[in-house]
């Protein structure tokens, strides 16, 4: 069994990478992938906790989060498609146009 602290450490590192990615990406897909990294960091956190505490609830939460991540990715891609149709690009710099 890997010590919990290592898993948490990895999770934090992944989270940081993900946050950096979200903040610095211009490309919509880049943002999406970075957001997925964040989610996976959180997932890792849950799974690790579940393993070290020998309880299944962590893992079940992880499954739920996984499903939510998929759904959210679908919605985001859908919006990106609509956006790219209007601006013929996936770079989010033109998002200003759509402010209400």
């Amino acid at each position: 069994m890997v010590p919990l602290s290592y898993i948490l450490f990895l999770s934090v590192v992944l989270f940081a990478i993900g946050v950096y990615g979200v903040l610095s990406r211009k490309n919509g897909f880049g943002m999406l992938i970075s957001a997925e990294i964040i989610i996976n960091a959180a997932l890792l956190n849950f799974v690790g906790a579940s393993a070290s505490l020998s309880s299944l609830s962590g893992a079940s939460y992880a499954l739920i989060i996984l499903v939510m991540a998929v759904l959210e990715a679908v919605v985001f891609v859908g919006m990106l498609i609509a956006y790219s149709k209007k601006t013929s690009s996936v770079l989010l710099s033109k998002l200003r146009r759509f402010r209400g």
Binding site: V19, V22, L23, S24, R25, M31, L92, L95, R96, R97, F98, R99, G100
Partner: peptide, 14 residues
């Protein structure tokens, strides 16, 4: 605040 800049929004959330 509502300037349509997605990155700024995310930063604000964080």
């Amino acid at each position: 605040i509502e300037n349509g800049d997605a990155t700024a929004y995310v930063a604000a959330v964080l």
